[in-house]
Write a protein that binds this DNA or RNA. Structure first.
Lengths: 121, 121
DNA sequence: ACAATAACTTACCAAAAGGTAAGTCCACTA
DNA sequence: TAGTGGACTTACCTTTTGGTAAGTTATTGT
């Protein structure tokens, strides 16, 4: 068992997973990797099905783990912006891989995601 | 929303994740990617903390999803062997990435996994 | 004959994760 | 002044996931 920060890991893969596991984290990160606009509601719009509670919760955790950073654009009307940190960006190849794998898989099943992307909005 | 097999996915990444999410699946697959011996108890030994119930349950799901295949070596004394299918192998780069990411992360935190691997058994 | 090993399954239970709905605060717009 | 949008929080509840422990069948080893 590898020990770090009062947690135990069975192997390096387990270490990596501890940052990105859960139903939403990878999805949030991979969207932050792609889209330009990064406000709270931009993210919500791009993650069909996520509740505000979940989004807020996950963003908080990702920030704590230093995968993303939040900048407060203005306080009076409260506006924020989220972006990947360097650590967050270091997961980039993972998101690319998962996206590509999914696209290839779907194609094998007769679904052309790229061509029909507009249908899935 | 992308639909396939009565399930809904928000994007291709979501499709990929549906095969490998959960506490144990990636760990099981990445071990099958590395070790030669692949019996039930070989796996159990290499996945500290997993219960037989969980291992059996996850193996069943992975087999159903066609990421692994099971060959029954003998019936009288019941012996089996698990291995990655081609689909399972296609996740290879993912396991490599996650392992490497973890190793790099640990090194930054002053833990040299490669050098001290024997300590973590 | 008895214990150990292999590959499970089953029943039961606890904890973690996630969903729903409502509420908050503030500012801008009509 | 009423309504809308942005960025949340909170309480409550359900589902999913995971853990424990015991049982099963059959073989090999002592």
């Amino acid at each position: 068992m590898i020990k770090w920060n009062n947690k135990e890991f069975t192997c390096p893969v387990d270490v990596s997973l501890s940052f990105i596991s859960g139903k939403w984290k990878i999805l949030i990160l991979s969207h932050l990797c792609q889209i330009e606009k990064k406000g709270f509601s931009d993210l919500r719009e791009n993650l069909p099905g996520i509740s505000e509670k979940m989004l807020s919760q996950q963003l908080k955790q990702l920030e704590k783990d230093q995968l993303i950073s939040k900048s407060v654009l203005s306080l009076k009307p409260y506006r924020v912006e989220y972006s990947l940190t360097d650590t967050g960006k270091s997961f980039g190849p993972l998101f690319t891989f998962l996206s590509q794998w999914g696209i290839t898989f779907l194609k094998r099943k007769g679904i052309d995601y790229i061509k029909d992307q507009h249908l899935y909005k």
